[in-house]
Amino acid sequence: MNKRIIFGIVIIFVMTLSAVLAPFVARYDPLKMDLSEDARLEKPSREHFFGTDNLGRDVFSRMVYGARISLSVGFIAVFISLGMGIFLGGISGYYGGWIDSVIMRIVEIMYCFPTFFLIMMVITFLGPSIVNVMIVIGLTSWAGICRLVRAEFLSLRERDFVQAAKVQGVSNFRIIFRHILPNAMGPVYVSATLSVGGAILVESALSFLGLGIQIPEASWGSILTAGKVYIDYAWWLTLFPGLAILITVLSFNLMGEGLREVLDPKLRERK
């Protein structure tokens, strides 16, 4: 078994488990404030592993609950972009012709777009909320997967088993999703795994800018917003949430790269 995949899966599993079991993992209520002078901006200690924030809330507990937000944004956004990418890439590669040209022009536009600006715009104008963040990240990140699926379809649609299905009178829809798609999924799994990390990064940046999760709830990115305000004093507010993002994204990327090596025999030989 590939070392990178194992490392990735173990970390992701631990993170997901603690997010699901947040009430048992966190020792404090993540929203409970303590405004007394000695409870605010407390250094990391045995009582508060990662210290407390400016409102006396336990940073560790907030991060455990924040993992719920960050992880679910990652998964749901990628789920949306997978759906769009597979559908558009599939019909684009299968039918070719004008459908293909139209979809590929849109893909090119998405590639040249400063996407982050579009995301910021849409979210501000629709109203910042975590659901909007998931949807908008999903809707703006399908171009890569679309291209990938299209390329696979272009080579697969000429193969004998597709011709055989056509001759038998199988509907186009069924050929695309039942016959070709399962054979095209290898690179898609890799790309989807890497995209989860990407989506988590975008969510954290948006929450950091105040466009993601809304107070009093927290995601890793929004804890960093407070970290920036108290950066000259409370280093723990900045250090730990960032590390959590780093480790999580790293795990998804390692898992994706590991999958790529396993699925692509050429890469294995080269090594």
Binding site: L201, K228, P241, G242, I247
Partner: peptide
């Protein structure tokens, strides 16, 4: 490279401010 890919760049900016600035 792996760490570079996974680092939230705005967090790196904060760390730079924290370390070299303060």
């Amino acid at each position: 490279v792996f760490i570079g890919y996974a680092t939230p760049s705005f967090w790196l900016a904060l760390l730079l401010i924290l370390f070299f600035g303060f």
